[in-house]
Amino acid sequence: MNSDQAAITEHLFTLRDYIRWTLSEFYRHQVYFGHGHVSAWDEASQLVLNAADLPWDTDPAVLDARLTPAERLKVLDFVRQRAEERKPLPYITGEAWFMGLPFHVDERVLIPRSPIAELIEQGFAPWLRPGPVNRILDLCTGSGCIGIACAFAFQEAEVDLADLSADALVVAQQNIVRHELSDRVRTCQGDLFAAVAGERYDLIVSNPPYVDADDLAGMPAEYAHEPALALGSGPDGLDITRRILREGADYLTEDGLLVVEVGNSEVHLMNSLPELPLTWIELENGGNGVFVITAAELQAHRHLL
Rank of each mutant, 00 (worst) to 15 (best):
E118I: 01
I281Y: 06
A96F: 11
L305S: 07
A125E: 15
D239Y: 05
R129P: 14
T68H: 00
Y251F: 14
L54Y: 01
V171M: 09
A249I: 01
A51L: 00
H225D: 02
R242L: 15
Q189N: 06
A230N: 07
S265E: 09
I281C: 08
N134G: 14
A51V: 00
D57H: 05
D191I: 05
R135P: 00
E180M: 09
Y223Q: 05
A40H: 11
L203D: 04
I240E: 12
V159K: 10
I176D: 06
E247D: 11
L245Y: 06
V267F: 15
V267I: 08
L161V: 04
N207H: 14
S206C: 15
G286L: 10
R16I: 00
L304H: 06
I204H: 03
T58C: 11
L101R: 11
L258D: 00
Q299T: 15
P90D: 02
L203K: 05
Q174H: 14
D4P: 06
L54D: 01
L304W: 14
A224M: 13
W97D: 11
S24Q: 12
P88M: 05
A195D: 14
L238Q: 04
L110R: 10
D53G: 06
C150F: 06
S114A: 12
R72D: 02
V75A: 02
A65H: 09
L110C: 11
A172K: 01
D4H: 05
L161T: 09
V196H: 10
Y223K: 08
C150T: 00
D17E: 02
